[in-house]
Amino acid sequence: MNKVVSKDGTEIAYETTGTGPVVILTGAGIVGRSDYAPLANALAARHTVYVYDRRGRGDSGNTLPYDQEREVEDIAAIVEVARGADTGEPVCLLGISSGGALVLEAAAAGVPVDRVVVYEVPYCATEDTASRWQNYVEGLWVALAEGREGDALELFMRFSGANDALVASARNSPNWAGLASVAHLLAYEAASTGDGVPPVARLATISQPTLVLTGSVPANARLGMGEMPPDFYLRASEAIVDAVPGANGLVLEGQAHEPDPVRLRSVMTDFFSGISWQL
């Protein structure tokens, strides 16, 4: 494990593996870099992979107050390390879920990378989902402010489409207390996507070749998401492709919110070689 100091003094923990074109992996959720080990290892067969703990997770620091801009600065710090290695290889940002929103913000902010790939950024691309998001965020902040971490976690599950039975099962799970103990990270997750809707004006400033990926499995057919619109992720992907100049989109058959590492590696390799697609 290595650490780099971000602009605000926060230490960001990262690991590097593999050789070849550089891929900087930004994950999602309340988990750390270890949860992305299978994906990082698969990518490392053809790429130099940097995988890091987002601030507040794993071995990284957690300087307060949180702001989306600080996470963009964290990405910039990792990019500087990768560029400093002076391998001559191109550098690509790969963002999964909310990590994809941060990657897009980094590209829009001018972080010096050559390519951008995002997978299922959870933007709310319809009025109905945007309204649901706003209600969720307002309830989340109240629950966290009042110390009701379990309720905050339930609110996230409800927004994601979980029904009463799944929520009850989760609350009775032996893992519930552990998850609730890091529920404050849900506030970071919420802020990482801004106001929840595609930031069209900022996306329009991205100049790097950009690939927008989504899985073909409808959102409401996925575990814990039965109440979500089936095209939730597809609509978000289409909005990004429409906003980013020259962006390409690709639907990965049979994939849900956690893409198959080998399949994603193949797509990344093709993207580095110049192959393009359209949603």
Rank of each mutant, 00 (worst) to 15 (best):
T26F: 04
H257S: 05
A130E: 10
A165G: 01
T19D: 15
A243S: 10
T210N: 05
A221D: 15
E149D: 15
D195C: 05
G88D: 05
R33P: 02
D242L: 05
V262Q: 13
G61W: 11
V117G: 01
K7M: 06
D53P: 01
A165Q: 06
N175W: 05
R235Q: 15
V182R: 15
S97P: 00
R70S: 12
Q208N: 06
R263S: 10
V117D: 04
R83P: 02
N172V: 00
G178Y: 12
R33S: 11
P259Y: 10
V267N: 09
P229I: 13
G249H: 07
S207H: 12
F272G: 01
P261D: 03
L223P: 08
P209R: 08
N248R: 11
S273V: 08
P259Q: 11
A247V: 01
V116H: 00
G29Y: 07
V31W: 08
V4S: 03
S181V: 13
I96W: 03
T87D: 03
T129V: 14
E73P: 10
A191E: 14
A243L: 03
V241C: 10
N248C: 14
R202E: 15
G20N: 12
L223C: 03
M157K: 09
P90K: 15
R115G: 04
Y50C: 04
E80C: 00
G246N: 11
V117K: 02
